[in-house]
Design a protein around this nucleic acid. Structure first.
Lengths: 110, 110
DNA sequence: TGTACACCTCTAGTTTTTCTAGATGTAGGT
DNA sequence: ACCTACATCTAGAAAAACTAGAGGTGTACA
């Protein structure tokens, strides 16, 4: 058996979460679903990765949380982007673009 | 201080190395230079990451090494891609394409 | 009524991958 | 003789994500 490939590009989780939250505040489970939906199942965010990441982002001051009710009438912790989070998102998006382009360039040589 | 951003996308090093070696056999230091050159300095491979990666790829049977002489007349360990390595490269490239496209898709929503 | 299921949060411990911070050595030029 | 660029390598730390769970709540339906 070869090595197992995951359904995430390491280092992009924070950025993806910030991006989704930049559209509208959302709860953890919703963030997973949203990413999965938009990526047409190519990206799978694992709960064991998501919640620690959300807590870290909160710690950094890039998102803030509050309790609310979901569409299904359940309690859930919602997260919203802060101004600092928006700036962080911009920075990470630019960094990602630059590096992803560079990787693509290397992969294209012949 | 925000978090430090590196000059690599985690998880792509193996693929990048295999790709460069698919063009022609090369020694470690040359692989670093090649990646840096093609990416126009956007990708920086660190020696402390490269050699362990090279040893791991050898262990997996994806590359093989032999001692040779460089253009500068120095001893260097050259690596060449094996057939299994070529297959691995194809698989990793396809995986990268799929995931990078998915990330781009998520980053593009508005 | 109760029970199954989908929804939702969370954490400890491990693994994978890369980085830091070195040590070691050689060839060629001054 | 010494400096610089070329070249390999490793131990230990750090970062990020994964495995593998535990636990709780509405809603539907048997």
């Amino acid at each position: 058996m070869g090595k197992q490939q995951t359904d995430m590009i390491r280092g992009t989780l924070d950025m993806l979460v910030l991006k989704v939250l930049s559209l509208e505040p959302m709860h953890g489970w919703g963030i997973c679903e949203r990413i999965k939906l938009i990526s047409e199942d190519d990206l799978q965010v694992n709960q064991g990765s998501l919640y620690p990441a959300l807590h870290k982002l909160t710690q950094e001051g890039w998102i803030k949380s509050y309790w609310g009710l979901t569409e299904n009438n359940r309690k859930a912790r919602f997260y919203r982007l802060t101004r600092a989070g928006q700036m962080q998102l911009n920075a990470e998006a630019a960094h990602w673009d630059r590096l992803a382009t560079a990787v693509t360039k290397v992969m294209a040589i012949s």
